[in-house]
Write a protein that binds this DNA or RNA. Sequence first.
DNA 1: TTCAATAGTTACTTTTGGTAAGTAGGCACC
DNA 2: GGTGCCTACTTACCAAAAGTAACTATTGAA
Lengths: 151, 151
Amino acid sequence: MTEEIEPLLAQPLQIAPSWNAYQAACPTRLMLNRIADKWTVLVLGLLESETKRFSTLQREIGGISQKMLTQTLRGLERDGLIARMVYPEVPPRVEYTITPLGQTLAGLLGALRGWSEAHMDEVLQAQSAYDKAEQGALKPEAANGVRRVRF
Amino acid sequence: MTEEIEPLLAQPLQIAPSWNAYQAACPTRLMLNRIADKWTVLVLGLLESETKRFSTLQREIGGISQKMLTQTLRGLERDGLIARMVYPEVPPRVEYTITPLGQTLAGLLGALRGWSEAHMDEVLQAQSAYDKAEQGALKPEAANGVRRVRF
DNA sequence: TTCAATAGTTACTTTTGGTAAGTAGGCACC
DNA sequence: GGTGCCTACTTACCAAAAGTAACTATTGAA
């Protein structure tokens, strides 16, 4: 950032703190990193409608490991998007509930999930077209060590 | 879309192929992985309104490396979300344009970016509250090697 | 006594992300 | 005519994150 001295103003450039995700150092960058995340989308999608416990979430999200589920839930808790309730029983019971703040995000993430499911066909088609073209682009030179440049 | 059973059809279970991101093997999982991605959000956000070239994108997205930009653009191109135009000039010029399919996604991603920027304050507050509580939870035992369990 | 159940951790491996340096091809300058 | 500059990339290399599998604590039941 270029620093210019504004002699009389304390914070000339941040009257209302305006965040900008396009700047590397902005905390929204970290935020984006968390919310634009596969597991976050799936976890918040489940918690949007009802409180669930750890094992239920793991069962309902195919292929998530305990480690990643724990990690994701911790992150969401720290960010204030979900709340964690521990019932001191044996065996232990822990419930996760979405917060009002989390609710404001869950809709957006649901739309993302919906988009994926709705446009999967088009994307798959685009992918196979791309891959076929790539194959063609490689064919003329055949199997030698020629450097692949895309110009 | 509701599926009605057509006895004489070859593919009875996939009249409208219904994808589900909660199943580990579903291709939408890969899709989510790509679109729920920091760099994707930022790149599509810039291309939403106008065609841009490589160097411009890199300049406008703080902190992205050439490698990650190339990788992200390739992925988006393969998925049919952007198109790549090469002008055989010297020095080279390559322009990236969002596709109609990409446009349908860009709005959602823009909303994500907007959410990050709009709720950053609340999240930062939640984070510091969480971190302070964590500190307190650790204090009683002080600095010995006691296993930290959260029950 | 061994087992089962839940919600985690921890050690280890693999994959991904980030950094920095190279590469191509031609034009301009001295 | 050698050097440097321009863009849009690759390619090594290293660090960080994700994934895998085994382990832990607690206690009631078989």
